Simulated scan of single mutants.
Amino acid sequence: MTRISVDTGKCIGAAQCVLTAPTVFDQNDDGFVELLQQAPDGAESRSARMAASVCPAQAITVRE
C-alpha cells in the first residue's frame, strides 16, 4: 500500500503535484500543498509517485 505524506514547511507552491496528481493533491488558499488522499491506489498511486519526483522542494514523501 502506498502512503503519502507532505511537509508543508518545505512546499514552495510550485503546484507541480496538483498538475501531476490532482485527485491526490490540492493547494490551500495560500498556494501550498494539501494532501487529499494519504493512501492512493492504482493510477492515483502512480501519479502520486510521479508528483513526488517532480516536486522542486522535495516536500512529498512516498512510502510503499
Score class of each variant (00 low, 15 high):
residue 31 G to E: 06
residue 49 R to I: 08
residue 44 E to A: 11
residue 13 G to A: 04
residue 51 A to M: 01
residue 5 S to L: 13
residue 2 T to A: 13
residue 34 E to I: 10
residue 42 G to I: 08
residue 59 A to Y: 00
residue 47 S to C: 11
residue 64 E to L: 07
residue 32 F to W: 06
residue 64 E to M: 10
residue 44 E to Y: 09
residue 33 V to R: 11
residue 37 Q to N: 05
residue 55 C to G: 02
residue 11 C to E: 05
residue 62 V to D: 00
residue 1 M to R: 09
residue 51 A to W: 03
residue 57 A to E: 05
residue 55 C to T: 03
residue 29 D to Y: 07
residue 25 F to T: 08
residue 5 S to G: 05
residue 30 D to Q: 10
residue 25 F to N: 08
residue 38 Q to C: 11
residue 23 T to D: 13
residue 29 D to K: 13
residue 60 I to A: 00
residue 10 K to M: 05
residue 13 G to D: 06
residue 44 E to C: 08
residue 14 A to F: 01
residue 22 P to H: 13
residue 24 V to F: 04
residue 54 V to P: 01
residue 20 T to M: 15
residue 36 L to N: 05
residue 4 I to E: 02
residue 9 G to K: 12
residue 27 Q to I: 11
residue 58 Q to E: 10
residue 15 A to F: 12
residue 33 V to N: 05
residue 28 N to K: 05
residue 30 D to M: 12
residue 22 P to D: 06
residue 51 A to G: 00
residue 58 Q to S: 10
residue 38 Q to L: 13
residue 6 V to W: 00
residue 46 R to I: 13
residue 6 V to S: 07
residue 50 M to Q: 14
residue 60 I to S: 05
residue 28 N to I: 07
residue 13 G to Y: 01
residue 58 Q to C: 03
residue 55 C to K: 04
residue 53 S to M: 07
residue 51 A to I: 06
residue 48 A to T: 04
residue 4 I to Q: 05
residue 6 V to T: 09
residue 1 M to Q: 14
residue 53 S to G: 13
residue 51 A to C: 01
residue 15 A to T: 10
residue 16 Q to R: 11
residue 64 E to G: 04
residue 35 L to N: 04
residue 56 P to S: 03
residue 22 P to Q: 02
residue 31 G to V: 09
residue 4 I to Y: 12
residue 4 I to K: 13
residue 48 A to Y: 02
residue 63 R to Y: 12
residue 56 P to M: 00
residue 21 A to P: 03
residue 35 L to G: 09
residue 24 V to T: 14
residue 47 S to Y: 09
residue 30 D to L: 10
residue 14 A to Y: 01
residue 60 I to W: 00
residue 12 I to R: 08
residue 64 E to F: 04
residue 46 R to A: 15
residue 3 R to S: 07
residue 44 E to R: 15
residue 38 Q to D: 15
residue 33 V to Y: 01
residue 22 P to S: 09
residue 31 G to K: 02
residue 14 A to G: 08
residue 11 C to K: 02
residue 50 M to E: 12
residue 28 N to A: 00
residue 50 M to W: 14
residue 10 K to R: 15
residue 21 A to T: 06
residue 44 E to G: 09
residue 38 Q to S: 15
residue 4 I to S: 02
residue 35 L to Q: 06
residue 26 D to H: 11
residue 39 A to N: 15
residue 35 L to T: 02
residue 35 L to E: 01
residue 29 D to E: 12
residue 63 R to P: 04
residue 11 C to W: 02
residue 38 Q to N: 13
residue 34 E to A: 12
residue 36 L to Q: 07
residue 17 C to K: 08
residue 57 A to N: 01
residue 41 D to Q: 14
residue 32 F to P: 02
residue 6 V to H: 09
residue 29 D to M: 05
residue 44 E to H: 15
residue 61 T to K: 01
residue 5 S to D: 11
residue 58 Q to I: 07
residue 25 F to K: 02
residue 33 V to I: 15
residue 14 A to H: 02
residue 25 F to A: 06
residue 26 D to R: 13
residue 42 G to N: 03
